[in-house]
Design a protein around this nucleic acid. Sequence first.
DNA 1: ATTATCTATAGATCTATAGATAATGC
DNA 2: ATTATCTATAGATCTATAGATAATGC
Lengths: 206, 206
Amino acid sequence: MPEATRRAVEAAPCGGATGEHRRDAQGTRRLLLDAASHLFAERGYERATVRDIASRAGVNQALLFRYFGSKKALFGEVMARGGQEQLRATPPERLFEVALRGMLAEGAGPGTDRSLEVCLRSIGGSDEIGEALRGLGDEYADVLATLSRADDGALRGDLALSWLLGIGLMRVVVGKEPLASADPDAVCRLVGEALTALLEGLPKTE
Amino acid sequence: MPEATRRAVEAAPCGGATGEHRRDAQGTRRLLLDAASHLFAERGYERATVRDIASRAGVNQALLFRYFGSKKALFGEVMARGGQEQLRATPPERLFEVALRGMLAEGAGPGTDRSLEVCLRSIGGSDEIGEALRGLGDEYADVLATLSRADDGALRGDLALSWLLGIGLMRVVVGKEPLASADPDAVCRLVGEALTALLEGLPKTE
DNA sequence: ATTATCTATAGATCTATAGATAATGC
DNA sequence: ATTATCTATAGATCTATAGATAATGC
């Protein structure tokens, strides 16, 4: 009886019935998306195989292709889903700190956005992957750029985003000490002071 | 006659004879190292295949394994060779700017160190790769940490290195505009001012 | 004779697909 | 009957190795 490993039961919170673990295309889609989101963040695009993802979702690997067409398309949906919410729900002047704290927090609850972590671990993948990553980066940088009134505000925004991603890179991906174990408050304070000077730097003219 | 594609002739600057393109184990080793250094920097560890590397070196692919044992071992030699020189030849207080300018410069001559670029593009590879990358990062961070006299100087050094790598990530790997096309002097000035505040920040006590 | 180089191929992955099986809705 | 799910496998890579070939040094 090879169906000993049925998908986890607690999922599929859409239908309303509680113990659902039967044929449910929508639910299976969501299970795959959640599993992919987790594994892409943990291992990056290339190292998270479709079999890993399907296995974590408790779902047959062929269904991933039935519902998403390809691994890249699945990645695209994961990236499109995440990030956007945090980006729109956060006022610009708080975006940097919120994103930084999200990166500094350990494996926080399922509510936290791991899109930036996915970006960091998927660098160097195929060009299409790079495109998907650039999209999210652009949105963040655009918001950060509005914080500076200098005429090179866009460049300053890029530099702020660069620091954010660099910190995530060293802390989360590389695990560099002492940064990896540093107190989030201390990191925020040090970075915040330096960045305030950068973003609120006096415009050249005025 | 399948030997139409002999290795490039201008190489092997060791023996002294100019037109050398015959059997030369040392020369072949060097050709492979150079080709690997270039391709790892351009595509990262995973995407640069052993066949690509051997092909660029104008050398049969089996020789890579004969002289280095494995692709990972070759990567280790590339990482060990690069970086160290720049790291030791540069006085600590100039290291950040030199490394930053090296990253901001386009495909500079063969003299420039591309180790940091290799790091950035190889993130997310296997764990052994991560180890090799961490080694280089540690050395840079150690030097940068000496610039700050604050009692959390090591953390400040990590944050400086994070920014350096983040800028390289956005500019070189992702190609984020306007950063990617920005004037190196402008970038250095903006980052330098903000970092001076961070690294020379007053110690908490004294 | 030694050994640098090349040919051919084993062996391990991984994505993706074709077609069989079986659970649901009418 | 419809369609969600599963089995089996094609097909494409990629690293690595065993053994053949051929250019050098004595």
